[in-house]
């Protein structure tokens, strides 16, 4: 896989990972899913989000010399966090689409 594909993957994993980390926070979950009957599986979202960020790091190290990769990764994380924060403030519904069904708990189905 060439360098630009690795970097594209790194960006995508970072945005997705930051998105899941944001959804694991109650305030942001309520912005994205105002319905009372859906709860996030916070632990799953947090752990998977962190894994995706690590995966993003792996892609950066595949693309570049380690000294360069570490800089690229840190800056990609910053960019991804801004993208997620701005999406939450302007179009929070969009983040719903990146949240897998497995990470959502239906309160009624438990009854």
């Amino acid at each position: 896989m060439n360098e630009s594909l690795w970097l594209t993957a790194a960006v995508l994993f970072a945005v997705l990972g930051m998105g899941w980390l944001a959804l694991s926070l109650r305030t942001h979950w309520q912005q994205v899913c105002p319905q009372q009957d859906l709860n996030p599986r916070e632990g799953h979202l947090r752990a998977s989000g962190a894994c995706l960020l690590l995966l993003s790091a792996v892609c950066c190290f595949e693309a570049d010399h380690p000294s360069m990769a570490v800089l690229v990764w840190v800056m990609i994380l910053a960019m991804a966090a801004v993208v997620v924060a701005m999406t939450l403030s302007s179009h929070p519904g969009l983040l719903r689409s990146i949240c897998p069904r497995a990470f959502i708990e239906d309160v009624h189905s438990q009854d």
Partner: peptide, 8 residues
């Protein structure tokens, strides 16, 4: 907790 918070 407010890492992603921006409320315009």
């Amino acid at each position: 907790r407010e890492f992603f918070t921006f409320r315009p």
